[in-house]
């Protein structure tokens, strides 16, 4: 399996770096709980009012929490010269983008999806909605990561990117949010979530083919003007 060795190495490196700073991994979860807390307070905290909006609130919360990790996706690699070494080396940048996206999804997408039961409990999400919620989030966060690597790659060499990153990412998140919360809604209304989940999966597959090459092209821009 030597053909995959560089990509495995990058995946392993990103996971190892993340676990060297384990506490940072909990920050998105902490952020998500805080957002849910704000919603819960604002909505009065009664189950009757929370239950109908709990699924969309969880969706928005998870997307926002995942978004916060994007700024750190490429910036350290730009700052210490790693990115230039990738561009100067023989390894396919598109392949490296797949490794990078996989690492990000494993760390944040899967992490946030697994923490959904906690958020669901806080928001009184009806228990029968939880399985479809988890399935939709697992697929949707994979798509969101793809959008994220494009946006992060486009802003990697900028000095700061905060609001700009949000401006780029949020409109593109929209279909994921619609199909994702649509799937949960379908179950709530007693219908089959299959259609919505398939549309969500189709969107994610499209992003998986489109995003890594786009991110690779974006990273090349600006290499002729190093910091």
């Amino acid at each position: 399996m030597t053909a995959l060795r560089p990509y495995q190495a990058l995946l392993a490196r990103d996971l190892r770096l993340a676990f060297r700073r384990r506490a940072d991994l909990l920050l998105p979860l902490g952020f998500a709980v805080l957002v849910v807390l704000l919603f819960g307070i604002a909505l009065g905290g009664t189950p009757e009012r929370l239950a109908p909006v709990s699924a969309p609130v969880i969706w928005v919360t998870v997307l926002l929490a995942g978004f916060l990790s994007l700024d750190g996706l490429f910036r350290p690699d730009v700052d210490d010269g790693t990115l230039d070494q990738w561009l100067a080396g023989p390894t396919s940048i598109v392949g490296l983008m797949y490794a990078k996206a996989l690492a990000h999804w494993l760390l944040y997408g899967v992490g946030l999806t697994l923490s959904t039961p906690l958020l669901a409990m806080l928001l009184n999400l009806p228990v029968d909605l939880l399985p479809v919620m988890l399935a939709a989030l697992a697929i949707g966060t994979l798509g969101a990561t793809q959008i994220g690597i494009i946006a992060a790659a486009l802003t990697a060499r900028l000095r700061r990117s905060g609001i700009l990153l949000a401006l780029i990412v949020m409109p593109l998140y929209l279909p994921l949010l619609i199909f994702g919360s649509g799937a949960v809604d379908a179950v709530r209304l007693g219908e089959s979530p299959k259609g919505a989940l398939l549309l969500l999966a189709a969107q994610t597959v499209l992003l998986l083919t489109l995003a890594p090459p786009a991110a690779a092209a974006a990273l090349r821009i600006g290499s002729d003007n190093p910091p």
Partner: peptide, 27 residues
């Protein structure tokens, strides 16, 4: 550089605009 970066974004948008429109209609 700004123009090229924004061009990548615009092309990503071209693929996504129909999907966004479809998803909003579906919604």
């Amino acid at each position: 550089q700004g123009a090229r970066a924004a061009a990548v974004l615009a092309l990503v948008g071209v693929v996504n605009v129909p999907i966004i429109h479809f998803s909003v209609k579906w919604w």
